[in-house]
Design a protein around this nucleic acid. Sequence first.
RNA 1: GGACGAGUGGGUGAGCGGUUGAAACCACAUCCCUGCUAAGGAUGCGUAUGGGUAACUGUACCGAGGGUUCAAAUCCCUCCUCGUCCA
Length: 416
Amino acid sequence: MIDLKLLQKEFDSISAKLMRKGVNAELIENLKTKNEELRVAKINFETLQALQNSMSKEFGIYIREKRDVSELKAKVDANKINITEALEIQRFKQEELEAVAMSIPNIPDDEVPDGKDESENVEIKKVLSPREFSFSAKEHWELAEKNGWIDFERGVKLATSRFSVSFGMGAKLERALINFMLNFNSKRGFQEVSVPVIVNRAALEGTGQLPKFEDDLYKIENQELFLIPTAEVPVTNLYQDEILNEAELPIKMTAYTPCFRKEAGAAGRDTRGMIRQHQFHKVELVAITKPDDSDKVFDEMVSCASDLLLALELPHRLVTLCCGDLGFGAAKTVDIEVWLPGQNCYREISSISNTREFQARRAKIRFKEIDKNSFVHTLNGSSLAVGRTLVAIMENCQNEDGSITIPKALEPYLNY
RNA sequence: GGACGAGUGGGUGAGCGGUUGAAACCACAUCCCUGCUAAGGAUGCGUAUGGGUAACUGUACCGAGGGUUCAAAUCCCUCCUCGUCCA
């Protein structure tokens, strides 16, 4: 949720920033109007209510003094009719405003480059050079099947398309990767947490997936419960509606969860292999910080994910997302793209975002300063998508005969 | 699944339908006193939002949502959560 006060005060500059993200001007203007209308309705209601309250107090005094209340009652009754009406108007305006406000994305940071889609993202740097192959590199699905690691057909049999099953070393590698990543993150100061993978509506509204993106979520029938699309949702919402002590911050957490996405609108994209699945494993980083610290922690998170790939000896690059490619809640995002020699391109494997106050405002996560309470900043980032990491290992570490040399960093996790 | 009971401010926990936004205690903050492996005293201290340069002040909130009433933390209904007992 964006700061409506700020929008009101600095309308031109805020709306200019939102328009960089593709929000249309009408919608922003509408938001401003709705906000003003609500204010007027509130003042009207509160004035009437104040009158009512004071008359009610008088009522008490009258009764104690055994005076006649019939005249006062008539006045109070008359006012009550006005109040009921004023309240109704206020409620209506409130709902109208919320509907608009909740659908407005976060304001991008000033240094986020202009651009309409991913083609205009800006590369920051490359880490490790792609290896030279003396043979033509195969794509991961071919390698996965050849090694018996992943069975795509049986996944479909059990559920539907875009589900897969891992066997043997494939399954072990997934588990090894999860443990490797969690340990790595712990050493970097991120506390491990284990959270529910089913959450309620409030949690999803807090992090911004709802109300706008309900179509992307798996919903549990007849209940207001959803499968999480990312651990960001439960982990960030751990502190929903809390006022934290300044001394507790920053809170840095890491969690492994399966993630569930309908991938609505992704028909035809990445249909082969395990790049885009309905269910996938992911290790997530989440941080809750004071506003002044969020840039520093953001950099830590980017390094953490990048160093993880470095430890696995996987070539990758860091990319700053342009305004048009920025997610709904993000003020700034750095993607990490891993090199896939089979596909001959870089593919997203991690995405680290600073949402600044956006989620904190929605989820009401605040911290106590000496004389006031302020919203925290929340950050999240994948570290990493496990399936895609496995894909990257297969494609980068393949040998001519189709076998795969497992990165040394994972050996301690496979010796059993 | 059924029967009770409970849900109050950062925590514990009072609270007759009207001067209760809410006692008390703890924690916390500032100050005072004292000076030694302590303690004592004073004051302040919920959240959100509106108005006002400010002092200050309006409104809402006692699990959530409705209702009764001139007036609800307090009465009624529904739901949620947590206990205890029964199946």
